[in-house]
Design a protein around this nucleic acid. Structure first.
Lengths: 246, 246
DNA sequence: TTGAGTAGTTTGGTCATACTAAAAGACACA
DNA sequence: TGTGTCTTTTAGTATGACCAAACTACTCAA
């Protein structure tokens, strides 16, 4: 009564290596139900072999897949341990595909535009919803940014830090993860661009205007200033990169 | 002068299986530089063995990793072929981590809130930027939605279709990919919820109001209507799911 | 000549075994 | 009790073998 014959079972067996897939499902189940807790190591490969009755090849394939999916962390020569699965981990697992995509002309701009879109709504919400503490955090970030104008390296850091506050305000852990992902994906291109004090000054002024618009509880102005700022930044980068790098 | 001894080279060799990683980098390179084109099959495992001088074990691990990363597509018993790497593919590769995250209480709400955030700015942009064609597409989607009020299955489809128009308007391929991802991740929970004509009617009216606000070129109203709509939808779902399902 | 059926070959999936080097654990010694 | 060394365990790798499915080329009949 089983469909274990060699027929085409389109939705179940066709896709991948059946044996390893079963193992993967097994461990995903264990992890999701909490029978394997975060930080806990998986059984040793040989233990799995004798427990589940499969070959070590299959076990290794399964573990490798789990590692690639980001469910476990497999350090060299260590037992793989169940990984904390947060939204940061999710973005980590697509780094390779994304960097593959970003070599395609035009894709960096597309990604950047979505960042503009997201930060647009974030500054709006900041303008309407920011608490005193949020405003203070922005003010502090702005001060740090101002002090770093002379040093391009730390200016970049404080620049990112200022923007990251915007992602923290809605108290939603997905948003900081998005920001980290954007930073990881876009910064390699950004860092190719030479920097100077004049540009830093301009960018700082832009940050200040955004901050002030938020302070005035004016979402339209905040969004407007942000878009100006990010458009300026994009044009700066565009001029310094070859066409095939954006 | 090489660091190929067995010392700890923290940033290079420590992380993973060195041999397979080198192979992976090799193929990633080939793919990114276009020496392996989209749809083209990788060499056979045995060919790679003799060309690169590594064991088949390592080759298989490397190929498996590439498949997991979404760079190649490895169907059962077929040669793995280089996969089209678009933003949709990127989201596909994190399905497992995300569904792992979504079993965690509260995470569905977090994800849903980011959807609200994104659609908020999308309706604003629709109100300010939508072309005649965009408006027509919305109108058509709305009409389809209206006709489906009596049939909950197709109402859900037309509901999604209406929202998807919003993601298409900025002409940025990242956005439809985001929408598809949201749909894939959230719909399993949504579909648990029983539906009825009355609810469908309410949701349709909400869509109509959003459409009209866009038609009036009123971004504030559009955002307001959208948030009302999505908040209502969330409350509907919340009432029908157990606490540990959201 | 052409098309379908068939036999042989190739290739991915799996298993078993062996070896190496590093990690983990046990143990003796100071 | 703390420390250094030895042994055991284990992940990483290599090799060879086998199976079944996919592919290829050939044969044979219409």
């Amino acid at each position: 009564m089983k469909n274990s014959t060699s027929f085409d079972c389109p939705d179940e067996n066709m896709n991948n290596s059946r044996a390893a897939d079963e193992l993967i499902r097994h461990f995903v189940e264990l992890i999701n139900t909490g029978q394997l807790k975060e930080g806990e190591p998986l059984p040793t490969e040989r233990k799995i072999v004798e427990t589940l009755g499969v070959s070590r090849t299959v076990v290794r394939e399964a573990i490798l897949s789990l590692a690639n999916k980001g469910l476990v962390e497999a350090r060299h020569r260590y037992r793989p341990v169940v990984r904390k699965s947060d939204f940061d981990a999710a973005f980590d697992t697509i780094n390779d595909v994304v960097s593959r995509i970003l070599v395609e002309p035009g894709s960096v701009k597309y990604l950047y535009d979505t960042r503009v879109l997201i930060e647009s709504i974030l500054v709006r919400r900041a303008a309407t919803d920011a608490t005193k503490e949020d405003i203070l955090a922005l003010k502090q970030a702005l001060a740090n940014n101002s002090e770093a104008i002379g040093d391009s390296e730390s200016f970049y850091q404080t620049d990112m830090a200022f923007h990251s506050i915007l992602y923290q305000i809605p108290q939603n852990p997905v948003l900081p993860a998005i920001h980290r992902a954007y930073t990881a994906w876009l910064s390699p291109r950004w860092l190719l661009m030479p920097s100077n004090e004049e540009k830093n000054q301009t960018n700082f002024e832009a940050h200040r205007k955004i901050y002030e618009a938020i302070l005035m509880r004016d979402p339209d102005a905040a969004e407007e200033r942000l878009c100006e700022h990010l458009t300026y930044a994009w044009n700066q980068v565009k001029d310094y990169l070859n066409d095939d790098q954006i």
